[in-house]
C-alpha cells in the first residue's frame, strides 16, 4: 500500500527538494501546515533550514507540537531532517537557550574548535557516516555501506542522552550523532534530499518502513 507522507511546512525549509526526493521513492506526498491535517497521514517529515528559536516558536504557536506528539503516540513514522531533527530535542543552545519538543532527551550544542584547531563552521559539505549496531539503524541504512558520504550544512549538533538511539556518528572535530533511529522516530542531521543516491536510498528505506507499518495496521 502506498505510504501517505506529510511534510510539515512551518515557514522554514526547502520543502520542494524534500517532497521531490520522497516522491521519487514512490510515496504519496503532501505539504501541510495545519495541525489537524497530521492525523490523515501514515508518516510525518519535519524538514528545516534556519535557526532553532523562530522555528520552535512557529511550531508551538500553531499547535503543531501537539499534533506531532499525538502522531508519535500512535507509533506512526516520523523523520526529522537537519533543523527538523534538532527540534525533537529537549533544548538548544543556538543563540541563547531554547526549549525544544523534548521528544528526545538531550541537547543541541555548537561546534567548538579545540585549542589551535582551525575548524570551519558551519560544518558544510560531504562527510561520512559510521553506522551503529542499533537494530533500527539497520533498517534506516539497509543496503547502504558504512562510511558513505552524505551532505551536511549545520553549526549545531545533537547530543542525545540515550546513546543507544544513535544510528550514525560523524567526525567533525568531535564524533557527533549524525542520525538517530528508534522504533518509529528517525532523525538525521544531514540532508538526505541533497545526498545524491545515498540520500535517496535512506528515503526509500523510510518509505518502505512506512508501507510495512501501514500494511500491518490497516
Amino acid at each position: 500500500m502506498t505510504a501517505k507522507i506529510a511534510i510539515i511546512d512551518y515557514g522554514m525549509g526547502n520543502l520542494r527538494s524534500v517532497s521531490k526526493a520522497i516522491e521519487l521513492c514512490k510515496a504519496y506526498v503532501d505539504i501541510i501546515s495545519e495541525p489537524e491535517q497530521v492525523k490523515n497521514y501514515n508518516a510525518v517529515v519535519l524538514p528545516g533550514v534556519g535557526s532553532f528559536a523562530p522555528a520552535i516558536k512557529i511550531i508551538k504557536d500553531k499547535g503543531l507540537d501537539i499534533a506531532i506528539k499525538k502522531h508519535l503516540e500512535q507509533k506512526k513514522m516520523f523523520l526529522g531532517i537537519c533543523l527538523g531533527f534538532q527540534l525533537l530535542f529537549s533544548k538548544s543552545y543556538e543563540e541563547g537557550l531554547y526549549e525544544g519538543l523534548d521528544i528526545i532527551k538531550g541537547s543541541v550544542e555548537k561546534f567548538i574548535p579545540k585549542p589551535d584547531e582551525k575548524l570551519i563552521i558551519p560544518h558544510i559539505g560531504w562527510n561520512t557516516i559510521n553506522i551503529s549496531e542499533n537494530i533500527y539503524a539497520k533498517q534506516m541504512y539497509r543496503g547502504i555501506n558504512n562510511n558513505e558520504f552524505v551532505y551536511f550544512v549545520h553549526s549545531f549538533y545533537c547530543k542525545p542522552e540515550d546513546k543507544k538511539i544513535i544510528a550514525t556518528e560523524t567526525n567533525y572535530s568531535v564524533d557527533f550523532c549524525s542520525s538517530i533511529a528508534t522504533e518509529n522516530i528517525w532523525g538525521c542531521q544531514f540532508h538526505p534530499e541533497k545526498s545524491s543516491n545515498i540520500g535517496i536510498a535512506i528515503l526509500k528505506n523510510f518509505v518502505s518502513k512506512c508501507e510495512d507499518l501501514n500494511a500491518c495496521c490497516n
Binding site: R16, K20, Y151, V153, E193, S195
Partner: peptide, 11 residues
C-alpha cells in the same frame, strides 16, 4: 532552477 531541483539531488 525549479526543474533542476526537481531532478538533481545535490546542492
Amino acid at each position: 532552477v525549479k526543474k533542476t531541483a526537481e531532478q538533481v539531488f545535490i546542492p
